[in-house]
């Protein structure tokens, strides 16, 4: 049973109050997802805002075949995908003469914090490691291990068989091991 069902039904009929409650319930997860998938980008809240706006606009088309959380994550993955595509096009436009490695290095350094707060450093280290993965591995691993979604939900969000999800998570974790080992 979807815990959000009643709120979703009211919001789909136009209740902003119900939608605001859905936002309160899921905003932290969506901001986390946006930040983890965009290398700790400062745009994470803008991306999350776009996710909720799209959700509000399309809510009347939500049929309730999956849980609202699953559906919202699917919207979020799509918004992040568009965002990263835009960023990568901008990077090519703004740094045409720079090699990929140098450009990546610039972007690597961009979100570095002077803040030594342990929590922030840990989050940054994980986000940097995730950023090294190809998008399809990064999304699968993040949905599973950062967001805590189950395999069936992830398969639904990505519209791929569960076996594909298992394989992506397996390969993603393999690649992350040497990067995250220093955290041990």
């Amino acid at each position: 049973m979807d815990a959000d069902r009643e709120l979703v039904e009211r919001a789909a009929r136009g209740s902003r109050e119900a939608f605001d409650e859905l936002v309160r319930r899921h905003q932290s997860a969506i901001v986390s997802l946006a930040r983890a998938l965009t290398h700790g980008s400062a745009d994470a809240e803008d991306i999350a805002q776009e996710v909720f706006l799209r959700a509000w606009r399309s809510l009347s088309g939500f049929r309730g075949e999956s849980a609202f959380r699953t559906w919202l994550h699917r919207v979020a993955v799509n918004v992040v995908h568009s965002h990263t595509g835009r960023v990568s096009r901008l990077r090519r436009l703004l740094l045409p003469q720079t090699g990929t490695a140098e450009a990546d290095d610039l972007i690597e350094r961009a979100p570095a914090r002077t803040d030594l707060e342990a929590e922030t450093m840990l989050r940054d280290a994980i986000d940097r490691a995730l950023a090294t993965l190809p998008e399809e591995l990064r999304v699968a691993v993040t949905l599973r291990d950062v967001q805590g979604l189950d395999y069936r939900e992830i398969a639904e969000i990505l519209d791929v068989p569960i076996g594909t999800v298992e394989s992506r998570i397996f390969r993603g974790r393999q690649r992350l091991k040497p990067l995250l080992e220093p955290l041990r």
């Binding site: 932290s28 901001v31 986390s32 840990l122 989050r123 950062v146 393999q174 091991k177 995250l180 041990r184």
Partner: peptide, 17 residues
């Protein structure tokens, strides 16, 4: 490896909104 990496990722502090 699978267990360790999953545990490290789960330890990622939640983002403050």
């Amino acid at each position: 490896t699978q267990r360790d990496v999953a545990a490290w990722l789960r330890s990622r502090p939640a983002d403050r909104v």
